[in-house]
Design a protein around this nucleic acid. Sequence first.
DNA 1: GTCTATATGCCGATAGAC
DNA 2: GTCTATCGGCATATAGAC
Lengths: 211, 211
Amino acid sequence: MSTAPAPTSTRERLIQAAVALFWEKGYANTSMSDLLSHAGVNSGSFYHFFDSKEELLVAMLDRYLTMLQPVLLDPAWEGVTDPIERIFALLGRYRALILQTDCTYGCPIGRLALEISPEQRDVHKLLAQNFDGWAAAVRGCLDAAAQRLTRDVDRDRLSKFVLTVMEGGVMLSRSHRSVEPFDAAVAELRAYFDCLLASAPKSKTKKNHRR
Amino acid sequence: MSTAPAPTSTRERLIQAAVALFWEKGYANTSMSDLLSHAGVNSGSFYHFFDSKEELLVAMLDRYLTMLQPVLLDPAWEGVTDPIERIFALLGRYRALILQTDCTYGCPIGRLALEISPEQRDVHKLLAQNFDGWAAAVRGCLDAAAQRLTRDVDRDRLSKFVLTVMEGGVMLSRSHRSVEPFDAAVAELRAYFDCLLASAPKSKTKKNHRR
DNA sequence: GTCTATATGCCGATAGAC
DNA sequence: GTCTATCGGCATATAGAC
């Protein structure tokens, strides 16, 4: 409970700068001087901690893995207990991000997945791990709601489908400069969930999904 | 019916090089010298036809619009008449592309949508037009199958959903270096379609969708 | 660990003869 | 319309004092 200004280390500030800038501008379009000035660090210090820009990318993706729960899931799920609604609350966070960025949002992980050369296998492995972590969170929700879903639902596959739809929706919203494509994708996903929940008894989750 | 070797113009060769290279390496990672050597053109000639690299990008995206039907849709739909199967045949083309590229495929349009800065509105307008053209083709299939779909299906929204799923599936396959995420997404989409076709009479489309 | 100064190379774009 | 030669700038990365 100290009020100290949190003396973030140089290494830490660089990772934070990477989180912000690789998200905002992509990897190649973020220059070393962008990173250095944003972090308030000099070139010499950078190369004391990292061998290259790519190594900072790796460190950033590692950080993302640990940020998923506290930074994304916990806030998204605060006050939301129903597991199916948690899935849509998570998608709601992305909707908020799209709006916050004036519909220019690109998911940092998805963006890097398409930008980074496939030869950089270590980077793509981390990207895949980030995707898997996200999907696993959704998978947890589906497991919690298992008895409400029709028996033949492949919950693992469905959790990845939610991720797929999120990524596609974010992409389309960026080029259209509008939330509408994202909203449409989420609405369609909701319709699918209604399908999968249809024959189950407790259909408590029927507020205003279909408009 | 001439057998002449089709003396492609310099401008044309540059556009073709852009189609190939912006797809393979992205926009920023394709250098002018990449483009010039691939097209067999000198720098001076390039700037005779285009004011800048970005202008070539615009020309390439215009070209993509005209290529959609003959290069993508026509081959995908050859021998496939059922409109719903046409949708999945189109997705099958992307599956083939993923396999052809050893699972490093990134849809050129989707990739640019995330890479290009939102400030370049003209580029994003063309990207959105490309997305819209693709979705419109799917929309045409859905319209043709309208009487088989449950009444409350929003066909326009559903056509965009198919695009969303394709783009998300391609993205995940690239980072996982496997077709599996794409296949899973398409299988889930098929399950959704089965839902939407369920209550209709003619369920001729039941071969082996669910495995 | 941090600083300034700088190496080295490729980038997109241009000049100007032919 | 095509050629060669080259510009100025910014990229990542390094050197070496403190």
